[in-house]
Design a protein around this nucleic acid. Structure first.
Length: 391
DNA sequence: TCTGGGGTCCTAGGACCC
DNA sequence: TCTGGGGTCCTAGGACCC
């Protein structure tokens, strides 16, 4: 049977939600990401009206302010976005038993064999669009193809409120018709490298041999490029990501130089990570500390511990050791981050029996505090070390 | 213009083992 | 005496995506 996949993409999601909830913002340039004057902020989402001024995602907010000083600038309400996202994902699950959400505003649907229920792919897509518009007031763009990879690119072909169906057999000519930067998986570095090699279009890639591509770009990227322009690329549906990680980081308004403040900032980030590990009921053996200096150079150092790390104080201890090893004094720090990689489900390993009794007690105490915080968010329980205003 | 935050996956080199 | 080959784990850095 011919496979049919949909890729559903919510149009300018955060900005659209703001326009939905605030009718006075409609038909006006809306920029979510920060307020004018917020240092070091970037644009998260720009409404289509704002895009006309050249504003786009990931742009420094200060530049967006210059391009359109009269735009409506907002920091964003992520709880609200998640709420609407899950409502939409629920609607999508009425159309396919196989929905993979790949981000807050995107999902793949396996629509193979649903013709008798919803009609042709185009008819099904229109039904979904209408349903979501009626139930939430938001518009989406849908890409349809025989592979998820091509469906994903097709959803971006006509936006907003668009639909693009790449029929079986048309994948290759569709891919060859695109500008290079529209190819999902080619980022700025690979694009530069391609241009440097005189490759300006997907057809130029098409003409190169596998061995040429793998020599220049490495085995993986080379094979990817070769397959992508032929529409041969696909991902596996329903494959679980291994090596799950939990991380938090913070960019400071002003660079940090004081050792005590640096450690306190790490302590704060560790609280966030530990809380989320508690929420997901996981532990980790690998802790990564990330430092971005004032000149934007970024380094990381990690340690794989022989014991499971499952509470904030232990995590902080490891981070202090890592900082000691890596930190170059005299250089200002603009960002600090902490990640726990390769997290594992609590109770899933023999290793836990190696966990000391004292540590176990400590973890239980922290969990009790988290539970209390969840139940009574109005009560402030703060560790003494936390500074509320590092900047 | 001066570069967020949360992720995943890949690469290359070193250590260690058989 | 002057150096194999494969496998696995770990580390640091990098590319990419939304």
């Amino acid at each position: 049977m011919q496979n049919i996949y949909f890729h559903v993409d919510l149009d300018a999601f955060f900005a659209s939600v703001e326009q939905l909830d605030h009718p006075e913002y409609r038909n006006k340039p809306v920029v979510v990401g920060g307020l004018p004057g917020d240092r070091r902020a970037v644009v998260s989402t720009a409404s289509y009206e704002a895009r006309k001024y050249g504003i786009h995602s990931a742009m420094p907010l200060s530049k967006a302010v210059q391009l359109c000083p009269n735009a409506i600038f907002l920091r964003g309400r992520h709880k609200r976005y998640h709420e609407l996202s899950s409502i939409i994902m629920n609607i999508l699950s009425n159309y396919s038993p196989d929905v993979i959400q790949i981000s807050i505003d995107e999902a793949f649907l396996d629509m193979t064999g649903t013709e008798r229920l919803f009609g042709s792919p185009e008819q099904a897509a229109l039904k979904i669009k209408k349903d979501i518009q009626e139930k939430t007031g938001l518009t989406i763009s849908i890409g349809i193809a025989g592979t998820m990879y091509v469906a994903k690119i097709a959803s971006g072909y006509r936006k907003p409120n668009g639909m693009t169906y790449i029929k079986p057999g048309d994948e290759e000519s569709f891919m060859l018709s695109l500008p290079l930067e529209k190819i999902w998986g080619i980022g700025s570095k690979t694009l530069q490298k391609l241009l440097f090699s005189g490759i300006k279009t997907p057809s130029d890639i098409y003409k190169k041999s596998i061995s040429y591509l793998t020599t220049i770009f490495g085995d993986n990227t080379g094979m990817f490029l070769f397959n992508a322009v032929r529409g041969n690329k696909d991902m596996k549906f329903g494959e679980e990501a291994k090596n799950h990680s939990i991380s938090a980081e913070r960019t400071f308004d002003y660079d940090l130089t004081d050792r005590y403040i640096i450690e306190t900032a790490i302590f704060e980030i560790v609280q966030t990570v530990a809380y989320r590990m508690y929420k997901e009921n996981v532990y980790s053996n690998t802790i990564v500390l990330k430092i971005r200096y004032e000149d934007f150079s970024t380094v990381s150092i990690q340690e794989t511990t022989s014991f499971p790390v499952k509470n904030a104080d232990k995590m902080f201890e490891v981070c202090q050791k890592l900082l000691e090893k890596k930190y170059r004094q005299g250089k200002g720090i603009r960002l600090l981050g902490v990640a726990c990689t390769n997290v594992k489900e609590n109770g899933s390993s023999m290793q836990e029996s190696l966990f000391s009794f004292e540590e176990e007690k400590h973890t239980k105490m922290e969990s009790a505090v988290y539970k209390l915080k969840d139940k009574h968010p109005e009560i402030k329980i703060q560790k003494a070390r936390l500074l509320n205003n590092i900047n």
